[in-house]
Design a protein around this nucleic acid. Structure first.
Lengths: 120, 120
DNA sequence: GCTTGACTTGAAGTGCACTCGAAGGTGCAG
DNA sequence: CTGCACCTTCGAGTGCACTTCAAGTCAAGC
């Protein structure tokens, strides 16, 4: 019914180690097991992993992701709180992008200086 | 002539610990000392720290910054190599910004979903 | 039936970038 | 002259996010 940890690793881009680690700390809840006790990842699992990865790459800490995952497990009653978490995170990402843009401008300026130096 | 490590910390936004650490690993070369052997930071030191901080916040590793600092110490002959390092880094930053933008769109979409959920 | 390779678990280890602690030196206020 | 804050060096410690290890289990191919 689901796919193996190897395939889930390939699809999600996370190592099998990381997949087990995420499960252990409660980021992915109760991944199903086949008859031999092996993990079996479903489509919803993979979609959740995908979203988790986006939170990670945008700089959310594992601890905060755990908090979000826990709220999610508690069901629809926590929807508003989860939304607020995402909104707070969204602001952080916007700030980060703005900061990167500023710093990039300085780096560009430096590169230009080097070009000028090399030509003269 | 220069300022104390406390003042340099305030101006640069780096802790005194970090300033000493950066010096120890060779990121800032030969910070001057006063008669009592205390560090004395000059304006060029502070400008260099500022640039280092921009490299850091844009994700350059300490190891790569050390490499850049070493080239800088070797003088103008290494200018082209330093420029190339910055150009490579620049590409990484651009990619990072693009990635953040994409992920942000997904987060925005999720926030929207929550709004819809809450209204219905 | 036996080997091979991928799976399971829990615990220990790694790398990065700091961050802190210990032990001692310096300079100024009272 | 004494206390006190702040400086020095060097080495050890911390937190995060994995990553690897050790020891054992299971299914498929020869």
């Amino acid at each position: 019914m689901g796919i193996t940890i190897q395939e889930a690793s390939r699809v999600s881009g996370l190592s099998t180690h990381t997949l087990r680690y995420y499960e252990q700390i409660g980021l992915i809840h109760e991944v199903g097991r086949d008859t031999g006790g092996r993990r079996s990842y479903t489509q919803p699992d993979l979609e959740w992993l995908d979203f988790l990865t986006k939170l990670r790459t945008t700089g959310m800490s594992i601890a905060e992701m755990c908090r979000y995952a826990e709220l999610r497990r508690q069901g629809p009653a926590t929807a508003a709180e989860r939304r607020r978490m995402l909104e707070v995170h969204r602001e952080r990402v916007l700030e980060r992008i703005a900061q990167l843009g500023e710093d990039l401008a300085v780096i560009d300026y430096k590169i230009d200086l080097y070009h000028t130096m090399e030509k003269s």
